[in-house]
């Protein structure tokens, strides 16, 4: 695996920062211990802290909330909102709303998956790109639409996806 070029929370140069985050998480979880149904809000908080849910964070949640690790994992796996893989530098979102879908959004998505060698929800090994789908970006006239971070690409053809990706460092 190539080293990520970007500063990421899981990078060793940020070790101190990361340890601090785990400490912070521990304190937050401990404060929620007696709250019924605390698991999901706590997981949301953890994901906001780290950008994803690393195993160490889930272990802390399990231990501090006194819930089996299998249950914590079960909840994380049930909701597509939660991610156990770190997000890439750039988030690609392919619209799967009705208009984009009928105008070939699915083919664009397939082309991106092939090009990046990841599935929906996945992140490339070099942590450059994460791939997600969206449900209507409100730009139906431009279908099919792909967004990379805040930038919108319209009338995308499957054959053009590598061209789009090349624009991002």
């Amino acid at each position: 695996m190539t080293e990520p070029k970007t500063k990421s929370v899981s990078c060793s140069c940020d070790q101190v920062h990361e340890d601090e985050l785990y400490e912070r998480l521990k304190i937050i979880v401990q404060s929620q211990r007696t709250v019924p149904g605390a698991l999901i809000p706590v997981l949301q908080t953890a994901q906001n802290l780290f950008g994803y849910l690393p195993e160490k964070a889930l272990r802390i949640v399990s231990k501090e909330l006194k819930l089996p690790y299998s249950e914590v994992a079960g909840v994380v796996g049930f909701y597509s909102y939660f991610s156990t893989t770190p997000k890439g530098k750039h988030t690609i979102r392919v619209c799967m709303g009705t208009a984009c879908y009928v105008r070939g959004g699915q083919d664009v998505l397939k082309a991106l998956m092939k090009e990046l060698e990841i599935g929906v929800g996945g992140t490339t090994d070099d942590r450059k790109f994460s791939l997600e789908v969206g449900r209507c970006f409100g730009a139906c006239g431009l279908a099919p639409v792909v967004m990379v971070d805040d930038e919108t690409f319209q009338r995308v053809k499957p054959s053009k996806v590598s061209e789009i990706l090349n624009q991002f460092e």
Partner: peptide
């Protein structure tokens, strides 16, 4: 009160087992 098995995933993909598809030997 052992907590080794729980529902993982969702829909057709759902399965009952340890966290993140570990084997039983690796859990409690």
């Amino acid at each position: 009160g052992v907590g080794s098995l729980f529902a993982q995933g969702r829909g057709f993909e759902s399965r009952i087992g340890p966290a993140f598809d570990q084997e039983l030997e690796g859990v409690t």
